[in-house]
Amino acid sequence: MSAAPSPLTAGQQARQRWIGILAEIPLPELEAAAAALPQQPGYTFLRAPEIGSALIRARSGGTGSRFNLGEMTLTRCAVRLDSGLTGFSWVAGRDRRHAELAAVFDALMQDPALSDSLDRTLITPAEQRRDAARHSMAAKAAATRVDFFTLVRGENE
Protein backbone atom coordinates (compact mmCIF):
# COMPACT_ATOMS: atom_id res chain seq x y z
CA MET A 1 0.00 0.00 0.00
CA SER A 2 1.00 3.58 -0.46
CA ALA A 3 2.78 5.01 2.52
CA ALA A 4 1.75 8.27 4.15
CA PRO A 5 1.55 10.68 1.22
CA SER A 6 4.29 13.26 1.13
CA PRO A 7 3.17 16.74 0.09
CA LEU A 8 3.30 17.24 -3.65
CA THR A 9 5.75 19.62 -5.22
CA ALA A 10 4.38 22.64 -7.07
CA GLY A 11 5.22 20.93 -10.34
CA GLN A 12 3.36 17.78 -9.34
CA GLN A 13 0.34 19.81 -8.24
CA ALA A 14 0.25 21.62 -11.56
CA ARG A 15 0.49 18.35 -13.47
CA GLN A 16 -2.16 16.72 -11.26
CA ARG A 17 -4.50 19.60 -12.11
CA TRP A 18 -4.06 19.47 -15.88
CA ILE A 19 -4.19 15.66 -16.06
CA GLY A 20 -7.51 15.73 -14.19
CA ILE A 21 -8.91 18.40 -16.48
CA LEU A 22 -7.66 16.69 -19.64
CA ALA A 23 -9.50 13.52 -18.52
CA GLU A 24 -12.81 15.41 -18.45
CA ILE A 25 -12.52 17.73 -21.46
CA PRO A 26 -15.04 16.82 -24.15
CA LEU A 27 -13.20 15.31 -27.12
CA PRO A 28 -14.20 18.00 -29.66
CA GLU A 29 -12.45 20.62 -27.52
CA LEU A 30 -9.29 18.50 -27.44
CA GLU A 31 -9.41 17.97 -31.19
CA ALA A 32 -9.86 21.69 -31.77
CA ALA A 33 -6.95 22.49 -29.48
CA ALA A 34 -4.78 19.93 -31.28
CA ALA A 35 -5.69 21.38 -34.66
CA ALA A 36 -4.84 24.87 -33.41
CA LEU A 37 -1.31 23.94 -32.32
CA PRO A 38 1.25 26.09 -34.15
CA GLN A 39 3.18 22.94 -35.03
CA GLN A 40 1.85 19.38 -35.03
CA PRO A 41 3.90 17.39 -32.53
CA GLY A 42 5.45 14.13 -33.66
CA TYR A 43 5.13 11.32 -31.15
CA THR A 44 5.28 7.57 -30.70
CA PHE A 45 3.24 5.40 -28.39
CA LEU A 46 5.00 4.02 -25.34
CA ARG A 47 1.71 2.37 -24.64
CA ALA A 48 -0.93 2.56 -27.35
CA PRO A 49 -4.42 3.58 -26.18
CA GLU A 50 -5.78 0.62 -24.23
CA ILE A 51 -9.31 0.07 -22.92
CA GLY A 52 -9.68 -1.69 -19.60
CA SER A 53 -11.28 -1.27 -16.23
CA ALA A 54 -10.55 0.28 -12.87
CA LEU A 55 -11.73 -1.45 -9.73
CA ILE A 56 -13.66 1.16 -7.73
CA ARG A 57 -13.01 1.17 -4.01
CA ALA A 58 -15.21 2.73 -1.39
CA ARG A 59 -15.36 2.66 2.41
CA SER A 60 -18.12 1.22 4.58
CA GLY A 61 -20.00 4.12 6.12
CA GLY A 62 -17.93 6.41 3.89
CA THR A 63 -15.14 6.39 6.47
CA GLY A 64 -14.61 2.76 7.46
CA SER A 65 -12.79 -0.17 5.93
CA ARG A 66 -12.37 -0.41 2.19
CA PHE A 67 -14.53 -2.57 -0.05
CA ASN A 68 -14.87 -3.03 -3.80
CA LEU A 69 -17.98 -1.31 -5.13
CA GLY A 70 -17.64 -2.32 -8.77
CA GLU A 71 -15.63 -1.34 -11.81
CA MET A 72 -15.60 1.42 -14.39
CA THR A 73 -14.24 1.55 -17.89
CA LEU A 74 -10.90 3.29 -18.24
CA THR A 75 -8.66 4.02 -21.22
CA ARG A 76 -4.99 4.76 -20.80
CA CYS A 77 -2.24 5.88 -23.11
CA ALA A 78 1.39 6.91 -22.96
CA VAL A 79 3.29 8.80 -25.64
CA ARG A 80 6.80 10.09 -26.16
CA LEU A 81 7.11 13.27 -28.19
CA ASP A 82 9.92 13.60 -30.68
CA SER A 83 11.29 16.19 -28.26
CA GLY A 84 11.70 13.39 -25.69
CA LEU A 85 8.91 14.52 -23.33
CA THR A 86 6.60 11.76 -22.20
CA GLY A 87 2.90 12.14 -21.56
CA PHE A 88 0.41 9.86 -19.84
CA SER A 89 -3.35 9.70 -19.66
CA TRP A 90 -6.01 7.76 -17.78
CA VAL A 91 -9.48 8.67 -18.94
CA ALA A 92 -12.80 7.27 -17.71
CA GLY A 93 -14.71 5.58 -20.52
CA ARG A 94 -13.65 3.90 -23.74
CA ASP A 95 -12.50 6.68 -26.02
CA ARG A 96 -9.06 5.81 -27.40
CA ARG A 97 -8.68 9.09 -29.23
CA HIS A 98 -9.44 11.05 -26.06
CA ALA A 99 -6.78 9.08 -24.19
CA GLU A 100 -4.28 9.63 -27.00
CA LEU A 101 -4.82 13.39 -27.15
CA ALA A 102 -4.86 13.71 -23.35
CA ALA A 103 -1.46 11.98 -23.23
CA VAL A 104 -0.10 14.24 -25.99
CA PHE A 105 -1.28 17.34 -24.15
CA ASP A 106 0.15 16.05 -20.88
CA ALA A 107 3.52 15.92 -22.65
CA LEU A 108 3.08 19.31 -24.32
CA MET A 109 2.12 20.92 -21.01
CA GLN A 110 5.58 19.95 -19.72
CA ASP A 111 7.18 22.01 -22.47
CA PRO A 112 7.96 25.44 -20.98
CA ALA A 113 7.58 27.02 -24.42
CA LEU A 114 3.99 25.84 -24.70
CA SER A 115 2.63 25.39 -21.21
CA ASP A 116 1.50 28.97 -20.58
CA SER A 117 -0.38 29.37 -23.82
CA LEU A 118 -1.95 25.91 -23.59
CA ASP A 119 -3.01 26.61 -20.05
CA ARG A 120 -4.60 29.86 -21.18
CA THR A 121 -6.32 28.49 -24.28
CA LEU A 122 -7.20 24.93 -23.24
CA ILE A 123 -6.78 23.96 -19.60
CA THR A 124 -8.13 27.00 -17.78
CA PRO A 125 -11.16 27.52 -20.05
CA ALA A 126 -12.06 23.83 -19.71
CA GLU A 127 -11.69 24.07 -15.97
CA GLN A 128 -13.91 27.14 -15.90
CA ARG A 129 -16.60 25.45 -18.00
CA ARG A 130 -16.47 22.36 -15.75
CA ASP A 131 -16.70 24.48 -12.61
CA ALA A 132 -19.57 26.52 -14.05
CA ALA A 133 -21.51 23.35 -14.88
CA ARG A 134 -20.90 22.03 -11.37
CA HIS A 135 -21.90 25.33 -9.85
CA SER A 136 -25.08 25.42 -11.89
CA MET A 137 -26.04 21.90 -10.81
CA ALA A 138 -25.26 22.72 -7.17
CA ALA A 139 -27.42 25.85 -7.39
CA LYS A 140 -30.32 23.85 -8.85
CA ALA A 141 -29.96 21.34 -6.02
CA ALA A 142 -29.82 24.18 -3.49
CA ALA A 143 -33.11 25.49 -4.90
CA THR A 144 -34.74 22.25 -3.66
CA ARG A 145 -33.49 22.76 -0.13
CA VAL A 146 -36.36 22.43 2.30
CA ASP A 147 -37.11 23.28 5.91
CA PHE A 148 -39.45 20.76 7.46
CA PHE A 149 -41.62 22.00 10.31
CA THR A 150 -42.42 19.46 12.94
CA LEU A 151 -46.03 19.77 14.03
CA VAL A 152 -46.64 19.24 17.71
CA ARG A 153 -48.71 16.14 18.29
CA GLY A 154 -50.89 17.76 20.93
CA GLU A 155 -54.13 15.75 20.78
CA ASN A 156 -55.31 17.04 24.19
CA GLU A 157 -54.57 20.66 23.67
Binding site: T44, F45, L46, G84
Partner: peptide
Protein backbone atom coordinates in the same frame (compact mmCIF):
# COMPACT_ATOMS: atom_id res chain seq x y z
CA UNK B 1 12.08 6.58 -15.34
CA UNK B 2 10.07 7.78 -18.32
CA UNK B 3 13.20 8.70 -20.23
CA UNK B 4 14.42 5.13 -20.71
CA UNK B 5 11.06 3.44 -21.11
CA UNK B 6 10.58 1.46 -24.32
CA UNK B 7 7.28 0.51 -25.94
CA UNK B 8 5.57 -2.86 -25.71
CA UNK B 9 3.81 -4.50 -28.63
CA UNK B 10 3.00 -2.22 -31.53
CA UNK B 11 -0.58 -3.54 -31.55
CA UNK B 12 -1.18 -4.63 -27.97
Amino acid sequence: SAATLTPGFADA
